[in-house]
Design a protein around this nucleic acid. Structure first.
Lengths: 116, 116
DNA sequence: GTTTGACTTCGAGCGCACTCTAAGGGCGAC
DNA sequence: GTCGCCCTTAGAGTGCGCTCGAAGTCAAAC
């Protein structure tokens, strides 16, 4: 599939897809006869996973590290798992923080409503 | 209290405190005889509120807008409340998103553990 | 009295994650 | 065949939120 189609389906821009490839986040995507990128379903799955890591605030550098480990082969599985576990804890902590902030906001809004 | 003390208590750097004042996020803080900033408890409460808005992802520009409304007086209370309500919804949505991402991460980690 | 160190203003610089531009290639429609 | 459009690469530019530096002031310590 073309880069435009991959962009549409992944929610990333074509610019971003090229950028991700350049920095090594995506291993070389296949090319067609004209040298144009040709994405397959596996590429899209990987993009979906990357998108989830990004959306949870993982820095690009860490995602590159993960991608690198994945390419290095099965013997890196444990390190990858540990990376995900550490990241999981950060996400959980972030949810807890936001939940606290949400109550504080709700309280503030209540005061605005009562004062009105 | 000095800017260092205010920085310590607010968790922001002295640089950031000056920056916030410069962009209008903090209305002019009092000065002592030597022209140095002199923060009071009210300033700190405002900083704590700002910190909470930032930590929930509100852009600086929106916080400036809120600060401006607050300075404009009581007749802007309704608009301020609406701002907070809109922001509250964004925070709630973000929590929902992160919660989903967390399950996805947990699932992925489970697979790593089973494969090991 | 001079050194030290924290303060002041204001503008420049930085890190991150894109986002866009320039310069050129390839291919289908007319 | 040439117009239009999308593709390619490499590198420059952008926006955000700080963060730092330069140049100067002031007050307490020695």
């Amino acid at each position: 599939m073309t880069i435009q189609e991959a962009a549409r389906r992944s929610g990333l821009s074509a610019h971003t897809l090229r950028y991700y490839e350049r920095i090594g986040l995506i291993h070389t995507v296949g090319r067609n006869g004209s040298g144009h990128r040709d994405y397959d379903e596996q590429d899209l799955e990987w993009l979906a996973f990357l998108t989830r890591l990004r959306s949870t605030g993982m820095p690009i550098a860490d995602m590159c590290r993960y991608a690198q480990l994945l390419r290095a082969g099965a013997h890196t599985a444990e390190e990858r798992r540990r990376m995900l576990e550490r990241h999981r804890e950060k996400v959980a902590a972030r949810i807890a923080e936001l939940t606290q902030d949400l109550s504080a906001l709700d309280y503030k809004i209540t005061i605005y409503r009562e004062t009105a």
